[in-house]
Design a binder for these strands. Structure first.
Lengths: 340, 340
DNA sequence: CTGTTAGCGCCTTCAT
DNA sequence: ATGAAGGCGCTAACAG
């Protein structure tokens, strides 16, 4: 490429005049549609190279009404389980030649709904949604603007057209874990609930846990503990508690970093894990295997989830999607923070 | 919005005819340029609402030659330090009203250079780059197509126009750490080097570490150990080694998950950390504080880096960027995996 | 204050 | 095989 052609981007028009052919011909070689002599193709390609011409994706998008881009809606890439999922999605999107536009939602529902507008206006071909904050109406709205959707982490949706869904099945394993717990002992069960920005997934799991305890006749042994979304604060909170050996029992935590707060608070107070305090983390990262004692988690491979989601979306875009629902079942990965 | 208008998206043209005004007037109310009666504005807004019209961002982009989108180039969001940076970038981009398009590079340099094309064609307003794989020529190429760039993690660049740079300064603290080590003892220093996909940052740090050892007269005590980029494999490798109490000393690891491999391998062989084996992780996440013993790291707040980078980029776009270089100095965060 | 008319950069019939 | 012309959805002068 010739460096002289910097600054103002060269357009297809310039390529046409420079090469002595028409727009149409240049367009044909760009898009590799036939009906072009090898000779002229060579010439056109040569001047494209010489001028350093790159077709504008947005002009192409407008003309073809096809932006070859997909949206991804996530709460924040801060949490490594989200990062893993994101990674799975972008890997697959890349394979299929889609650009990925990232839409990050805020804590509050109101601002959250604003991303719906953005997604619609961005003219993406489709969107993968992993976000507890978005209402079902928000999702419906996107679909009504004919943007195909793949939703992760919801059990059901009242619409089915142009929608694929990946439910994350924690219920069964969570219930089983609790019932196994009560078969082996009768310590209290504590469910850690974050005080703010708690999504619908954890809210429903809380209800499920409570329900299971009640069903097993241990409703009096189920407690909810409010925590903040921070390792340090969780650690401090439980350090004070465990110092007096209070509230020992079986802890169910939303994420492994918070589970580690409980874990370290217990260990540092010479409280034995898993004999005096047991810990289960719902969501786990690779670090749940690394920390000592290692954490029992309700395992779901988030990278896998992300890549499947993106694959389902691309299939929707080709109209080749067979099953619109692909549930992911968590499996309990028993490690050292719970008793055998 | 009326549900009847689904499927085929309504255009500004329809809004114009429906409301009885011209394109120009509708366009004015959309963009809130003045010169419109409150009355007609109201009417236009009403039919926009009624038809459920949303302006197409790509058509706007083409017409205004302003896509209000920025690119982000990263190797993969898998690693949580990248995820934190990404989070910082998207947070700021959102504040300034930019869409974020994610470009994920592959391992191999060749495919890596392909993202350059993509970035150029995407017509982004600017791009933040955090990627060791991209060559300086790749970056130059983007700049030559007049896309402003903010590069993270490089010490220098031979171009300065339209380029902001955020060097990540590990050298000084790394040297200091090593000299402190030799003041307190004389154990061997082992530098863990990943066998593949190793970026230029770690390569240069390796050289620096070696250089410092030599300078201190301990060149014979510096060793490089090849590892793979996996906690489990690193753990296994060092478990075998430590079983026979071989190669005890001071370990410098690229990331905390790998440092944990060494850490756990030592601990599980009843080798005391930090008295027999010391461990320093160059890059640390929140988990480096969580694991026991906690890891000494060369601390840099990656969220902060990401948000500063995006802020510098937006300032470039407004032409209000003062200093084009904003070095981030790592500080050594001494914790329990090294001796005082 | 409102409407007309060119584009933005590219694709795509339809002729030739 | 090639070119001319219209259009994708919207903005931005320029006239009225």
């Amino acid at each position: 490429m010739n460096e002289d052609y910097m600054k103002k981007r060269v357009t297809i028009y310039q390529v046409a005049t420079e090469s002595g052919f028409s727009l149409a011909t240049v367009s044909r070689v760009i898009n590799d549609k036939g009906n072009v002599t090898e000779e002229t193709k060579r010439k056109v390609l040569e001047t494209i190279e010489r001028l350093g011409y790159k077709p504008s994706a947005i002009a192409q998008g407008l003309a073809k009404s096809n932006t070859t881009s997909v949206g991804i809606v996530i709460p924040s890439s801060m949490y490594s389980y989200v990062a893993n999922m994101l990674s799975g999605m972008t890997d697959i999107a890349k394979i299929y030649g889609y650009k990925t536009i990232l839409f990050v939602t805020s804590q509050d529902k109101q601002a959250s709904s604003k991303v719906v507008e953005e997604v619609i206006q961005a003219n993406v071909e489709g969107v993968v949604i992993f976000d507890d904050q978005l209402s079902e109406d928000d999702i419906k709205k996107m679909v009504s603007y004919s943007v195909p959707v793949c939703v992760i982490g919801r059990d059901s949706l009242s619409i089915s057209d142009n929608v694929a869904i990946i439910p994350l099945k924690y219920e069964q394993t969570l219930r089983k874990t609790i019932s196994l717990h009560f078969e082996k002992g009768d310590e209290n069960v504590y469910f850690l609930k974050m005080d703010e920005g708690e999504g619908s997934l954890m809210t429903s799991l809380l209800k499920i846990a409570e329900d299971e305890c009640i069903k097993l006749g241990h409703g009096d042994k189920f407690f909810v503990k409010e925590i903040s979304d921070s390792y340090t604060q969780t650690y401090d909170q439980f350090y004070e508690l465990f110092k007096e050996r209070k509230d020992l029992g079986f802890y169910i935590c939303p994420r492994d970093s918070l589970a580690c707060g409980v874990l370290n608070a217990a260990t540092d107070n010479h409280i034995d894990v898993p004999h005096e305090v047991q810990i289960l983390s719902i969501i786990g990262t690779k670090y749940s295997k690394i920390v000592r004692p290692s954490l029992t988690i309700l395992d779901v491979d988030m990278y896998e989830v992300g890549s499947i989601a993106m694959r389902m979306l691309t299939k929707q875009l080709n109209k080749t999607l067979q099953t619109k629902e692909y549930p992911f079942y968590s499996s309990i990965l028993e490690r050292s923070s719970t008793r055998k």
